[in-house]
Design a protein around this nucleic acid. Structure first.
Lengths: 323, 323
DNA sequence: ATGAAAGCGCTAACAC
DNA sequence: GTGTTAGCGCTTTCAT
């Protein structure tokens, strides 16, 4: 690939002039502009963003750390972020941490080396590792440190809404299938559900799953739940796990919602495709993605950003899996 | 962030020595190594990959162009690629083209500027745009040019298998819901299906959808199909669209597989979650992802790679949506 | 309006 | 073993 020097020589000007032309900074005469543009096209020249970044200290790249791209929730979030990023001329590095602390640490090293402009962490399992970084960071769900803003849905309230809805629909014997312990969101959903139950003087059962989304593993867990039929309402920590639960229930001849009512969490696209379609607690996925990147970009541009918890409202989406 | 000069000064050596230490190239005495390492840790220094890339002409980055990350098929493919890439120390730039030729072109410009080591295009709609690039490229599904290797499943045979299976199960009045015209894969699946039908002297109906995966739009298309009940077998161009079709059929009271048998394509995870679970033609997703990146890495490393069509075998996965 | 030159952080050839 | 130095492709200050 050619470089700025080559273009300059061919156009019979200095590299400074070409640089000015490329950046629209400083004066370049019309004639010169045309000459330069012609040579750029002839050579198929594209300015080297790496060289540029090394000087400007802004690579215009963002690192996206996602625990699991296969989960529809996360890829809908990534879609929103990608869309926004590209519109403002930023490119995305994608890292799939697989909810592994080790992998996240390794990724962080690589990310630092690429001098990204900012980092979007999600469900992070690292803390101090971020403190030595002086790159803007925003976090989804898990808290990292007191100097990093956290975006999440109001999971606690979401859990509460899930209970209230099931209770409303007549359920009195409920089960909550809870997600892994190291997800803050999961704990809050559970707590909201249980607190709401206590308020009504209802005791609920809780089973913890240790994986976010791996169909086979989830199915194994399900088989271990004794007498799942005895419940009349089940709240599952996310939609994809709820889909597996639904399949399992139908498989053993339980009718939804007549025998057991089922409610998920996320409102990822999968809920609509199930039959019966899945009642769920909606997280405003697109807003989450947009807020994450907006906060990040502001920090990159050295605008003031309040470092706090940004809590987005959840909402009950009533579909067919509840009465 | 500190630089190599700072580390060198603090360790009381020259930058060349630090560079040698970092790269494990050339001799550095044990004592010096220790001193340097100590300073690196104290400063929290991470070598600048951009500066390195500018010199070595290898940024160790790969651009991944995906038409639609929300489609489970593609995010399973991305997962396989990400996994492989990270293991060998490559990072991924992610671009979601949304099947737009314009967007793909723009992405290509950005990608060039970042001097990526290689590009994985998928379902590309550009041709000449790639020819002026001298970066290794591999393509998934759509052919780009005679100098670029293409990986795909054997879509033609897959279409044939879909027909044969439905025919086997007694269907005689079949519909194929075909994907958008600019997807080569979609055309081949259709052709395989139709050719197999002709061989049996059977006439099949075909309806073309103009989007890959946007639930609402697909639903609109479905409503327009007249008297869908008259068919006893439907082959849908991918699993996600098949899920929408299934939902639609169940919604109008048609029982699957007893009244209508349904078969999808891809074998993305969604098929298992549906009820009845979806019979489908499996693409070996993980193999596809792995082959794509293997071919690319070889080219990056200047190893010989045969420029041809790499056709991976498809396979019938029999589940509950067919008899 | 344009050019010369210094410098961004790094690697590597060459000298000692 | 280690240091000096040129150079990768770029931006920008300061002359002219």
């Amino acid at each position: 690939m050619s470089n700025i020097r080559e273009i300059a020589e061919r156009a019979g000007v200095s590299i400074a002039t070409v640089s000015r032309y490329l950046n629209g900074s400083g004066y370049v005469s019309e004639k010169t502009k045309i000459k330069i543009q012609k040579e750029i096209e002839k050579a198929g020249y594209t300015p080297n963003a790496l060289a540029r970044a090394i000087f400007t200290k802004n690579s215009r790249t963002i690192a996206l750390m996602i625990p699991n791209i296969t989960n529809p929730f996360f890829n809908q979030m990534v879609t929103a972020i990608e869309d926004y990023a590209n519109k403002i001329g930023y490119s995305l590095f994608l890292y799939n941490t697989g909810d592994s602390r080790e992998k996240e640490k390794e990724c962080l090293e690589v990310i630092k080396s690429y001098r990204v402009s900012g980092i979007i962490a999600s469900r992070s399992q690292c803390k101090e590792e971020y403190s030595e970084i002086n790159i803007p960071v925003v976090s989804f769900e898990n808290h990292i440190s007191s100097s990093i803003a956290t975006v999440s849905s109001d999971n606690y309230n979401g859990g509460k809404m899930a209970f209230d809805h099931l209770y409303d629909r007549g359920c009195r014997n409920m089960l909550h299938i809870k997600g892994p312990r190291n997800f803050e969101a999961t704990e809050l959903r559970c707590k909201g559900f249980v607190d709401a139950a206590n308020k009504k003087g209802i005791k609920v059962d809780i089973v913890e799953f240790e994986t976010d989304f791996q169909v086979q593993i989830l199915e194994e867990y399900l088989k271990r739940i004794e007498n799942i039929k005895k419940y009349d309402g089940i709240f599952v920590f996310n939609d994809i796990a709820a889909a597996v639960v639904m399949k399992h229930l139908k498989g053993i001849g339980i009718s939804i919602p007549h025998q057991v009512q089922l409610i998920g969490f996320d409102d990822s696209f999968i809920g609509e495709l199930l039959y019966p379609s899945l009642t769920t607690i909606r997280q405003p996925i697109k807003e989450i993605g947009t807020l994450l990147i907006e906060l990040l970009i502001k920090q990159i541009n050295r605008e003031k950003v309040e470092i706090k918890d940004y809590l987005l409202e959840t909402k009950l989406i009533k579909r067919e899996s509840t009465l």
